[in-house]
Computed example of a mutant assay.
Amino acid sequence: MAAPRLLITGASGNMGRALLAELAARNVAVRSALRDPADARDAQGDTVAFDFENRSTWPAALAGISALFLLRPPPLSDMKATLIPFCDAAYAAGVAQIVFLSVVGADTKKWVPHHAVEKALAGRPATILRPGFFAQNFADAYREDICADNRIYVPAGKGRVSFVDLRDVAEIAADALLTPQNHQGAAYNLTGASAVGFAEAAAMLSALLARPIRYVPASMLGYILHQRRRGRPWMAAFIQTVLHVGLRFGAAATPDATLETLLGRRPRSLHSYLADHAQLWAPKP
């Protein structure tokens, strides 16, 4: 296999692992950038110690790289000191394509950290992916409540969500990295094909797990405090709360056909994701 020409940041997270699996299936060599290379349980090919806040780690990560997958770590909020200068360093090092994992609405919501990165990449060789709410939230942000308390607890009211599966997003990210000529300059809003309410999601889990799972709508203050008790930083708790409250007003209810067009097939449904990973929500002893 040839030396890695792709650098994957956030390689130990949900999106990073999904992308590494997709690239491995395509027999593509990659370099995984990790704060701690000991986290390389699913990494493919090379691994390199990397920290957006430590510029001395950047040259080794970027050496010989032609395309970069860029992901903002949730704790980072100062893009002008981290991701934006790293993008500058990447282009200076010869990177010819950056695929940035943003979020739906980042083009207009200036308070979202991703907005500043999108603005910095405008007019440069880059592709912006703006996925909506991830199906994988059920295995991440919502998992502890499901396992410990048999409930989904978010401040979304009766809002419905077109959940998108990271495995589908990974296919598009891989295409944008490997065939940049087809995607440079594009910004894609990526959602699932149909919207689901949290009460409906709870019913799906109840049937799959053979135990009752409830949806309990949270208040804004209650959810912020809940997130803090779970160990989230204040800023991350605030952003998560605002994003979920937006669901009450239809912020993620309308499916976008872009993902289906890019995939050439119907995106995976939330039910298919939950069914494929039902073992993740075993009750806590």
Rank of each mutant, 00 (worst) to 15 (best):
M1W: 08
G45V: 07
P212R: 02
L20Y: 01
A195I: 07
E144P: 00
F134L: 14
L70A: 07
K119Y: 03
A81E: 11
T127A: 06
V196Y: 00
F52Y: 15
L225D: 13
G185F: 02
F50K: 08
A81Q: 15
Y188C: 10
R124I: 13
D145N: 14
F238T: 13
A29C: 02
H271N: 13
R160S: 15
S102Y: 01
L121M: 04
F198A: 02
R41I: 13
Y215M: 01
A176C: 11
K110N: 10
A89F: 00
L190N: 03
G222N: 09
L71K: 07
D51Q: 05
V216W: 10
G197V: 04
T179P: 00
F138N: 00
R248V: 03
H271K: 14
K284N: 13
H277I: 03
R55H: 08
P217N: 10
G222E: 11
E171N: 04
L225N: 13
P217A: 12
C147P: 01
P85C: 10
G123S: 06
P255M: 09
G10A: 06
S269A: 12
F86R: 03
H114R: 00
G159F: 02
Y142S: 06
Q136N: 13
F86S: 08
A90S: 07
Y223K: 11
P255L: 09
A60W: 03
S56Q: 15
